[in-house]
Write a protein that binds this DNA or RNA. Structure first.
Length: 113
DNA sequence: AAGCTGACGAATG
DNA sequence: ACATTCGCCAGCT
């Protein structure tokens, strides 16, 4: 079951469109795992770099990048996300503007598989 | 097996 | 926008 959750989370993350971001909690919700935002973080930490998962499109619910400002990881995420046209101001992203709000019917269909 | 930890969240100043 | 506090929860040790 747990491995099922893992792949469900990865799959959900893979659906975040370029130029948009989602929060950890949002991914958990969509993956059918409400209340498990931290689990998303954990699995994302352990993701296989081989499959280029758009992990950089996941941030905190307030738009903050989860890594400490100035850290290598934060810088990398910053570059990746900005290369997709998303603006970042000292570790923060404007959620009003960039939050992914998937079409419900579409996302339900895509999550089914 | 009982804590500990953390790529979190919401609410408050 | 930033810091604190508290709640949360699964994986790790």
């Amino acid at each position: 079951m747990s491995e099922e959750h893992r792949s469900q989370i990865y799959h959900t993350v893979s659906l975040i469109p370029e130029g948009k971001v989602a929060s950890y909690g949002q991914i958990a919700d969509l993956a059918g795992l409400p209340g498990r935002a931290r689990l998303v973080g954990l699995y994302l930490k352990q993701h296989d770099p081989t499959r280029n998962l758009p992990w950089h499109r996941v941030v905190k619910s307030n738009g903050q990048i989860a890594f400490p400002n100035g850290s290598d990881k934060a810088i990398e995420q910053c570059q990746r996300i900005m290369s997709e046209g998303v603006l970042v101001n000292n570790n923060y992203i404007e959620m009003k503007k960039y939050k992914w709000d998937p079409d419900l019917t579409d996302i339900l269909y895509r999550l089914a598989f």
